[in-house]
Simulated scan of single mutants.
Amino acid sequence: MARVVVLDYGSGNLRSAERALRRVGADVTVTGDPHAALDCDGLVVPGVGAFAACMEGLRSVRGERIISRRLAGGRPVLGICVGMQILFQRGIEHGVETAGCGEWPGVVDRLEADIVPHMGWNTVRAPEGSMLFAGLDPDTRFYFVHSYAARRWDLEPNSTLPAPLVTWATHGDDFVAAVENGPLCATQFHPEKSGDAGAHLLRNWLKSV
């Protein structure tokens, strides 16, 4: 059974994520302990609310360093919602710019849509070869709650490494809905709130752990 830590840094649907991961067979611990977060088989980084507040909480538990060290060792990390957004280089909310973890270049900013926040069920466009979305129909819907997103993908191709697989969705304009980048995966939607579809995706992720 895969040992998964849901990182507790003061933000995120911790218990929802814990229940969803237990449902698909993971041995789950919710903790902010750096040693546990480094030693587990898979690390989940949730997040809700403001980019800046999430980064402040993440730094308080040395979360940036934990993520970086895990990825350097090829050990799986899954970011969810704002836990995905903080993996980018920076976020801009209400005119305030905040540095993110910088695992990917690019900026997270406000969606351009008639209705914000984007709240509810939406389809996504997963690329061929996706591990996260394997076995799911193209019309499968996932649950989103967000006002901000990465609306561009700025990482240049690297001939020595496999290209990241980027999944897109649309609300007003296109935005990044998920990324699969070696041991680092992330979703803008909430798999833990997406019913059977979310459980299927989490089960797929656990296969990589």
Rank of each mutant, 00 (worst) to 15 (best):
G102A: 11
D114G: 15
G57M: 02
D114P: 03
A134G: 03
V96W: 02
M131G: 15
V145F: 11
V124D: 05
R59W: 05
F144Y: 12
Q188H: 00
T98F: 04
D173G: 13
D174H: 10
D139A: 13
G100T: 05
I86W: 00
H94Q: 14
V145D: 13
M55R: 05
C54V: 08
R110S: 02
L87S: 00
R69Q: 15
H190M: 03
N122R: 10
H94R: 15
V96D: 12
G95M: 04
L58G: 10
D154I: 03
M119P: 00
E64W: 01
P164Y: 13
G120V: 09
V145W: 12
R90V: 00
G102L: 11
N158A: 13
R90G: 00
F133W: 12
M119V: 12
M55C: 04
S60K: 05
E112C: 12
A177H: 01
R70L: 05
R152F: 01
V124Q: 08
D174A: 14
L111D: 04
V96I: 13
A113Q: 11
Q89Y: 01
F133D: 05
L132C: 03
P117N: 08
E103H: 14
V166K: 02
D137L: 10
G63N: 03
S130F: 04
P127G: 10
N122T: 08
D154T: 07
L58W: 09
P157D: 09
K193V: 02
R90T: 05
R62Y: 03
C185S: 12
P162K: 11
N158S: 13
L155V: 10
P105H: 05
N122E: 05
V116D: 06
Y143L: 08
F142R: 06
V107F: 00
R65Q: 15
G182F: 09
P157A: 10
E64C: 14
F88H: 06
L87M: 14
E112G: 07
T98N: 09
M55Y: 01
Y143N: 09
N122V: 02
G91N: 01
V166Q: 04
V116T: 06
V77E: 00
C101W: 00
G63H: 01
P164N: 13
L161R: 15
M84R: 04
F142Q: 07
V82A: 10
A72D: 14
G172M: 02
H146V: 12
L87Q: 07
A50C: 03
S60Y: 01
E112T: 14
V166R: 04
L155C: 05
D139I: 00
F175R: 07
V96R: 15
I92A: 05
E156G: 07
G172D: 03
R69M: 11
L136E: 06
T170N: 12
S60P: 02
L161W: 12
V61H: 08
G135E: 09
G182M: 08
L111V: 03
P183Y: 04
R125K: 15
H146I: 11
A72M: 04
S68T: 15
A163Q: 14
R75C: 04
H118G: 08
R90F: 01
N122P: 09
W168K: 13
G79Q: 03
R70C: 06
D137F: 00
H171S: 01
P157V: 08
R152D: 14
L155Y: 02
T140K: 01
D137R: 15
D154S: 11
R70F: 04
W168P: 14
V108G: 07
E156K: 14
D174W: 04
G129N: 05
T98D: 09
A150G: 11
